[in-house]
Amino acid sequence: LADYWKCTSCNEMNPPLPSHCNRCWALRE
């Protein structure tokens, strides 16, 4: 979970790649 990032649109936790959210497809900010 070290490099995971949280989507600013839906708060889904996503892996470093790809740089878009797996749930709502918003790009990582």
Rank of each mutant, 00 (worst) to 15 (best):
P15E: 04
W25E: 13
P16M: 01
C21G: 02
L17T: 08
R23D: 14
A2L: 05
L27H: 05
H20K: 12
E29W: 03
R23E: 12
L27K: 13
L17E: 15
L17S: 12
S9G: 06
E29C: 08
W25M: 15
L17D: 10
A2K: 14
W25R: 15
W25A: 15
R28Y: 05
N11G: 05
N22K: 13
P18Q: 14
S19A: 08
N11F: 05
A2F: 03
E29G: 10
P15A: 06
L27T: 12
P15R: 05
L17P: 04
C10Y: 10
W25C: 14
P15W: 03
P15L: 00
P18Y: 09
P18I: 09
Y4V: 06
H20Y: 07
P18D: 11
P16K: 02
C24M: 00
H20A: 05
E12C: 04
K6F: 06
R23A: 11
C24E: 01
N22M: 11
R28A: 08
R23T: 06
W25K: 15
E29L: 08
P16R: 04
C10P: 02
Y4H: 10
L27Q: 12
H20M: 03
S19L: 08
H20G: 08
R23Q: 09
L17W: 07
P16L: 03
N22E: 13
P15C: 02
L27A: 12
H20D: 03
Y4R: 00
S19H: 12
N22C: 08
P16A: 05
L1I: 14
R28K: 10
N11Y: 11
H20T: 06
C21K: 02
A26G: 10
C24H: 01
P16N: 00
C10G: 00
A26M: 08
P16G: 05
S19M: 06
C24G: 01
W5S: 07
R28I: 03
N22A: 13
P18L: 12
L27D: 11
L27F: 05
L1S: 14
S19Q: 13
W25G: 15
W25Y: 15
S9W: 06
R28H: 10
R23Y: 04
S19P: 11
S9V: 15
R23I: 02
N22S: 09
